[in-house]
Design a protein around this nucleic acid. Structure first.
Lengths: 213, 213
DNA sequence: GTCGTAATTATGCAAGCGTATAATTGTTCG
DNA sequence: CGAACAATTATACGCTTGCATAATTACGAC
């Protein structure tokens, strides 16, 4: 008989690109950037390696798209459910809680982020994505902070608002990092309480009360 | 004539191992983990690649030692000069300032740390180093915090001390991370002021005053 | 001195990498 | 039903990688 050539189904470009991106992220999570080879990605996505070149002209392009997808997903997960809260203070508290709770706090997620950081430092386009993701998140956080402070009758000026947002963002990121990188070091819900207390102290707002809603 | 075999000098084991570790760190900084190949490391250390195998039975062993060296250096840099301060509050302020100032805050340093994180997630021994480094730093921070609070007439209980240390560590780490990963996003000394204010707010201590000493 | 030995170099290998290109095959449209 | 075309597979090339092993050489002991 003739050699059995592999059967396949044609898929739309979007479907395939997304599948390849997901396969890339999975592999980086499981085996680090090292393990995310073109061949392994193709196998995971159940296609042959040549197809990757058909959708991404280079591997770096695929990695870049994977990074974008991961960061967008992270921001989305963090802000999911925030807008539904009634008061600004409750929205802020909800954001803080979400930031230090699974699925946002997650070993794989932090590992993924760290794995990308070196690409970020070397590739200009990835650096742009990084900067935008960071500023995006911080701006949204700053708006929540300003809202909560105004609600409490004390609206900060622009400089204060910026500094408070940077500080709160620092706490959130730091705890996110530690919770993900060293999961067994903290009790369940411990980070939640600490994050609310710390951000609350910086802003002089009682967030622990607001989080109970 | 016969081929010119390379001249060399014999060095002690410690010297060579240290040189190889330094070369590894340099390369990871400059080109990411990807660029730190056995051949590149050897060239940087001005030896041939076979010598690496003579001192480290595997490349991972070298990487692990490099990680250890980097983390130890980071902690040392951060605490340098802290002990000299007079009061506990000044010591705490000095630590906070050092944590968000070069050379501790540094793009290369953060990149190095991130590059290692994936190894940490996969190698048990590196995970142990990571956990110990983290707890070591946090314990020292906690002692400074307790000292400063007692100095102010309010000694926290063990649970409070732990939570405060985690929170302050979070701010410090978060700002360290952001300062290193996105240097151009902050003005000079901006992080210093924010870090002092944030940690001060969490502990309800005036650290900005104490930092001026 | 010269001799032994550990440090160092030199060379090679098998595996894996990303990329290129040609051959096939599923799908769509008239 | 068949032709055209894009999606997909198959294969191969050149390079780099980490690791192994044998040949050399600097240096201290006696």
């Amino acid at each position: 008989m003739t050699g059995e050539r592999r059967k396949f189904r044609r898929e739309g470009a979007d479907t395939r690109r997304q599948a390849l991106v997901m396969a890339t992220l999975d592999l980086i999570v499981e085996q680090g950037v090292r393990g995310a080879t073109v061949r392994a990605i193709a196998e995971r996505a159940d296609v042959t390696q040549g197809l990757i070149r058909h959708y991404f002209s280079t591997k770096d392009e695929l990695v870049q798209e994977a990074y974008l997808a991961h960061m967008a997903g992270l921001t989305e997960q963090t802000f999911a459910g925030v807008a539904e809260r009634e008061t600004a203070r409750e929205r802020l508290a909800a954001l803080v809680v979400a930031s230090v709770t699974p699925p946002v706090v997650d070993s794989a997620s932090v590992g993924l982020w760290a794995g990308f950081l070196n690409h970020v430092r070397q590739d200009a386009r990835m650096r742009a994505v990084h900067a935008q993701t960071y500023h995006d998140f911080r701006d949204r956080l700053e708006r929540l902070i300003v809202g909560a402070l105004e609600e409490a009758g004390r609206g900060p000026d622009a400089g204060q608002a910026r500094r408070l947002a940077i500080a709160c963002n620092g706490v959130i990121d730091g705890l996110w990092l530690e919770g993900g990188a060293l999961p067994e070091a903290f009790g369940p819900d411990e980070l939640t309480g600490i994050a609310l207390a710390a951000v609350g102290a910086i802003l002089q707002l009682d967030l622990e009360e607001a989080a109970k809603t």
